[in-house]
Design a binder for these strands. Structure first.
Lengths: 243, 243
DNA sequence: ACAGTAGGATTGTCCGACAATAGGGCGATG
DNA sequence: CATCGCCCTATTGTCGGACAATCCTACTGT
């Protein structure tokens, strides 16, 4: 009996080598990649092959170009880019509002707890700023949603645990459109969110982890009520906003 | 004042359109994609351009080919493929063992809780099978790690919540190599895992959610002890196994 | 109905080419 | 001496064509 033999296309091998070099830090973030021609020469393959490999790195967020720039730079994958893939996957696996909401239920209270224990001054400041933006800012629902997202992001950032930030991100991406629907339909939603954010902010600011977790748990439960009032069926698959 | 204008390369546009068609289910999982030439004709671009777009879909896990086949088939992104991107991102963001372990701490007890509430007969059977494999199976540490991973996966599956499965997956991927080190170094580790799996399995089987969550919490705390005994520094960045 | 085969279609890879434009160096200028 | 603007070159994006390998499919013979 012989073991399976599987040929890998050259573009995948090239990509694998490059990814390896990036993850083992031979190529560090900020470095610029050699030109396509140079890579082709070094790998002994055609430029087209290198380009196909490049697209893989690019869509993994490992390389990117500055806006309006032409040179490819090694870059640490942005949470939002990585999470986009997760969001797509969840949508394609028929994740429902309930599923995502439940994950939030599990994740957010401990995040608030950890944030209260480990936040630094700058974290509190950032949170306060985002909370304030939501209060002052008047009508536009889409901006409100962005600020709510940002509040959660900064709270997770305050835990100084990238795993939590990255776990949370796809949930935010998936819920954002529906949250907008809730804000549009339910008049008191915005006020309730503002109140909740204030309570959580205070608890986190005071380092009262238990309290922060409790308020957050209430906040997330409140989200569910919002869905019910806005007549969004929880067992419905999430329709992801296009792209 | 004019708004920023940013030109997108054709390969990205093509990819975006295809991704859109997949997420909105115009192209359903199982369908085969048109050939590259045909796509090039329809989009009015060159085949090379189509191929570059294809690499993006491929690395996102949206299309794949059956082993040894040549035709591209639309496919739902496998959790493990998607999670690989997340794992890479975490490693590049200098996530430490503590970070990942903490996320496990937050995630696993509620997962066990939900699994106990919603598991079906088949889920229990699958769990029992994996747990049994770990017991019977003798020496090979790498197999043991695989079975531990699989136990967690099946437990998450028993929640019937894809968001939880997908949130958990990168944590497993990142911890697996270190778990192997623990099993290699700490003699009693394997027995403790077997015991813990048995307790959790019983609680889940009996539908005792609280108990399942408690045993799981203990189990995860035990992992940490394993790290300490194996002399793995928790505040050290995780070195991801190559690819 | 089924197996085997031959032709066609598709993919992986290469080569070469060219327009557009960003990068970088050089010279002019204060 | 420092700064600005300009020109040349390198690089990327895209195209067209080509070819070997091999998978797919439809036909044919039993």
């Amino acid at each position: 009996m012989f073991e399976q033999i599987h040929v890998e296309p050259a573009y995948r091998k090239v990509a694998a080598v490059l990814i390896g070099r990036i993850t083992d830090r031979s190529l560090a973030a900020g470095d610029r990649l050699p030109s396509e021609m140079e890579l082709a020469r070094q790998f002994g393959v055609n430029r087209s092959t290198v380009r196909e490999a490049m697209r893989e790195l690019e869509s993994a967020g490992l390389v990117a170009r500055q806006r309006g720039s032409k040179l490819m730079v090694i870059t640490r994958p942005e949470h939002q880019v990585v999470a986009e893939g997760v969001s797509r996957a969840l949508a394609l696996h028929d994740a429902t509002y309930f599923h995502v909401w439940e994950a939030l239920t599990f994740l957010e209270p401990p995040i608030a707890h950890a944030a209260a224990e480990r936040r630094q001054a700058a974290d509190i400041e950032a949170l306060r700023e985002t909370a304030a933006q939501l209060v002052t800012q008047g009508a536009a629902a889409s901006d409100a949603v962005r600020h709510v997202e940002e509040y959660f992001r900064r709270l997770a950032t305050a835990t100084h645990n990238p795993a939590l930030c990255l776990a949370q991100e796809p949930l935010l991406q998936l819920l954002a459109p529906s949250l907008r629907a809730v804000i549009d339909v339910v008049p008191q939603a915005r006020a309730r969110i503002v109140t909740a954010q204030g309570r959580i902010l205070d608890a986190v600011g005071n380092g009262n982890a238990e309290l922060a977790a409790n308020w957050m748990a209430k906040h997330v439960r409140d989200f569910r009520k919002g869905y019910e009032v806005a007549d969004i069926a929880l067992d419905e698959p999430i329709a992801r906003r296009s792209l």
